[in-house]
């Protein structure tokens, strides 16, 4: 199922975004623009503000200062569920599946959330599970899945109705090298076949360096480097803040 959801003129942009929580600055004047068809890595040590930035880009967190723009229009006041309908989807660190529901229902919910009727949502969900290789698990309770499959269901849920942008929050956490290879292939397939722009938060450097064309490095809420994997790896500030420790 090849769907070209990405429209090449589309952009998801954060402009001079600052986010403060009761005086604590979580994000400090960050700029970034994502376009369909690219895979952007978002890295940084723990507490750097990566998830906060993703929350801001997906409507879960309104920036204190600055703006979030989808195709040039401000979406800083748009709710998370509305932004999903406008084509910005995400996954979560902890999976956050609907545990008491079946795998296919988990994906179906997103179809229904996108405005499909239940039968149409079920059909789309089934197709998507087939595409992602989980059709044999469709009727299993989501709470009973191993974490690798859990991540896949999360991705399937984020993919229904072809979003323009998909933000993945640490999809490889806890995975073995072999499992990481599968995940990297999946992320590339999503980009190639759905054409969406992907933002990948990841600690696993093998995954980040393996699939991302561009990398944005945060430390304590500030941008410390941006560039290709090769450039970022050589950047002294990055080495000091992040890679040096590893």
């Amino acid at each position: 199922m090849v769907q070209q959801g990405g429209d090449s003129s589309s952009t998801l942009e954060v402009r001079d975004v600052t986010i403060r929580f009761e005086g604590l600055t979580a994000i400090d004047q960050v700029n970034e623009t994502v376009t369909p068809g690219e895979i952007l890595g978002l890295i940084g040590p723990n507490g750097a503000g990566k998830t906060t930035l993703v929350n801001t880009m997906t409507g879960f967190q309104e920036p204190t200062v600055g703006d979030v723009l989808l195709d040039g229009t401000s979406v800083r006041k748009v709710n998370a569920h509305q932004l999903r309908r406008m084509g910005v989807s995400r996954t979560f660190q902890a999976g956050r599946l609907f545990r008491e529901m079946s795998v296919v229902e988990n994906v179906e919910v997103a179809g229904v959330g996108m405005g499909l009727r239940r039968a149409a949502a079920h059909k789309e969900a089934t197709k998507l599970l087939d595409w992602i290789g989980l059709s044999d698990r469709a009727n299993v309770l989501a709470g009973a899945l191993p974490y690798t499959d859990e991540r896949r269901v999360g991705i399937a849920r984020a993919l229904i109705q072809s979003p323009k942008f998909m933000l993945l929050d640490e999809p490889a956490a806890g995975m073995s090298d072999l499992e990481c290879d599968d995940l990297m292939k999946l992320v590339q397939r999503v980009r190639d076949e759905f054409g969406c722009g992907i933002v990948l938060i990841e600690h696993n450097m093998r995954v980040v360096m393996g699939v991302c064309e561009r990398i944005h490095v945060l430390d304590s809420g500030r941008t410390i480097a941006r560039g290709t994997p090769g450039e970022v790896q050589k950047n002294p500030a990055v080495i000091e803040a992040y890679l040096g420790k590893g």
Binding site: T58, F60, N79, A80, H81, Q82, R84, R85, S89, R90, T91, F92, R96, L97, F98, R99, E100, M101, E105, N106, E108, V109, A110, V112, G113, M114, G115, L116, R117, R118, A121, R157, A158
Partner: peptide, 22 residues
């Protein structure tokens, strides 16, 4: 579809919002 969407929010409100559920 209304019941399904609401049950999803019962399981996980944040994830339901991310799935487009109002």
């Amino acid at each position: 579809k209304f019941g399904l969407a609401l049950r999803a929010s019962r399981e996980d409100e944040v994830a339901a919002k991310a799935a487009g559920v109002n």
